[in-house]
């Protein structure tokens, strides 16, 4: 890692782009999910699209976590330690799962190889399959659009893939690579102190997209945090069906919007709380 950053030609640039694009990817997926949620685009017939998308979000978070831990610097080492202990706290299968994840009783060089395999083998495969499914479903059901009550009948709004759509995509691509290069130049990825299993640093922090779990963990007990986070993940994936249940219970009011608002505000609050203090 040190060699890539400091010795190999353009290593810092490649790493910068890799790192910054991971941040952007997480941010983009989260924003996309929020947009879809509040426009109700997950509702029939797009339940499966949502579920696959939610799984994509989890996989992307997995990417972020394993990638960060692979740095094997002080902060990420202790982040992985915390995550390992969280896994251990899962009822019944926890200890076995944690052992499997860490390749032993604690975080070590073995963990690095396992995380590496996750990061470059298992997670990409999962991501491709899920994304494939997601896109297939999108093609199948079409992109959902706002339909306002007073809007005239839908026009046929297709346009040719080449050159129009391709050019848009290329344009976005160039803009993004430009942005990433700028970020890599202005905020090059550093490398913290090497992991030291004996001394925990004074302040450990995960990547920003895990701030909320970190703060949640500080405020609640270990097993409660694990269970609640697991439940939250389950609800996220299964929301279209939960929503259907809710609308049956209260047909007049859209409870989902309210719950979503509370959830987003809660996440935002937890994240900000962690970021600021």
């Amino acid at each position: 890692m040190k060699a890539i950053t400091e010795e190999v030609a353009f290593g810092w640039w490649i790493r910068g782009i890799h790192r910054w694009s991971s941040h952007l990817m997480v941010a983009a997926v989260i924003l996309h999910a929020i947009r879809v949620f509040f426009t109700g685009a997950y509702r029939a017939p797009r339940e499966l699209t949502w579920a696959s998308g939610a799984l994509v979000l989890l996989v992307v978070l997995g990417f972020g976590f394993t990638g960060y831990s692979l740095l094997y610097e002080q902060l990420s080492y202790w982040g992985a330690t915390v995550a390992g202990n969280l896994t251990e706290a899962v009822p019944l299968v926890g200890p076995t799962l944690a052992r499997l994840l860490r390749g032993g009783g604690g975080i070590s060089e073995n963990t690095v190889t396992r995380f590496f395999v996750l990061h470059i083998g298992i997670l990409p495969t999962a991501l491709f399959l899920l994304l494939g499914l997601h896109l297939l479903l999108v093609r199948l059901h079409g992109v959902s659009e706002f339909v306002f009550r007073d809007e005239a009948e839908k026009r046929e709004r297709t346009f040719p893939f080449f050159p129009d759509h391709l050019l848009t995509e290329v344009g976005i691509g160039v803009a993004l690579t430009f942005l990433l290069t700028c970020l890599a130049c202005i905020f090059p990825p550093g490398l913290g102190e090497r992991a030291d299993p004996v001394h925990a640093p004074a302040h450990i922090k995960p990547e920003w997209y895990f701030y909320f779990t970190f703060r949640w963990l500080k405020w609640t007990g270990l097993s409660f945090a694990v269970l609640s986070l697991g439940l939250a993940a389950f609800l996220l994936v299964a929301w279209p069906w939960v929503d259907r249940l809710l609308s049956r219970l209260s047909p007049k009011r859209d409870l989902s919007i309210g719950i979503g608002l509370v959830a987003v505000l809660a996440l935002l609050g937890l994240t900000l709380r962690e970021a600021l203090g």
């Binding site: 190999v8 030609a9 353009f10 640039w13 490649i14 290329v170 160039v174 690579t177």
Partner: peptide, 20 residues
């Protein structure tokens, strides 16, 4: 323009992959 910019980027990547 595309060829020039991505070509340069690719050249960097090649230098990265085959450090002299």
């Amino acid at each position: 323009a595309l060829l020039a910019s991505y070509g340069t980027g690719a050249a960097y990547a090649v230098r990265f992959l085959f450090p002299t």
